[in-house]
């Protein structure tokens, strides 16, 4: 009898631990069960990333449609090559879409905003976005403003 109730308590203890793990996974880290969503890869070149990080958000009209998978330097053009993972259900981005690096809030995270163009053809896996706008560099801006060379 004693042994049995003890086993029961131990079982409850283990289950409580499992529950805590699930809580940490789902509620705290926001892991959704379909987080491994199918994606396709698109590339974009920027002159200046200005603090864009891997795992940064890719958004269209403010809605997240993918994430930054990798950032590397293109040795030939001396520009940054960014690899984006876009969810497969967003398959109608035109080939003349514009990718720009934006900041959420004044000092928040950098993310990539996509604005769609007018082309009839859509971006496919492995394509490159040519039309890009680099990050708005606050320090450079202030520097230019202070020396009176602001021309924007």
């Amino acid at each position: 009898m004693y042994q049995r109730s003890m086993e029961l308590v131990v079982g409850v203890f283990i289950l409580l631990g499992a529950l805590a793990m699930v809580f940490l996974a789902l509620q705290v880290s926001g892991l959704s069960l379909d987080s491994q969503r199918a994606t396709y890869k698109v590339y974009a070149q920027f002159d200046d990333l200005g603090g864009l990080n891997v795992r940064g958000r890719v958004s269209l009209a403010g809605v997240t449609i993918g994430r930054v998978n990798n950032v590397s330097l293109d040795k030939e053009s001396y520009s940054a090559l960014v690899e984006l993972e876009i969810y497969t259900e967003v398959d109608n981005l035109s080939t003349d879409s514009v990718a720009s690096i934006q900041t959420s809030g004044l000092l928040g995270d950098k993310y990539i905003a996509i604005s769609v163009g007018a082309d009839e053809e859509y971006l496919a896996d492995g394509d490159t976005i040519f039309d890009t706008q680099s990050a708005l560099n606050l320090e450079k801006l202030i520097g230019a403003f202070a020396s009176g060379q602001a021309d924007f």
């Binding site: 203890f13 283990i14 409580l16 631990g17 529950l19 805590a20 793990m21 809580f23 940490l24 705290v28």
Partner: peptide, 14 residues
């Protein structure tokens, strides 16, 4: 027991 306790600790703390 230790990881279980740690998970419970974090959950309760949150």
């Amino acid at each position: 027991s230790m990881p279980i306790l740690a998970a419970i600790f974090s959950m309760v703390g949150i």
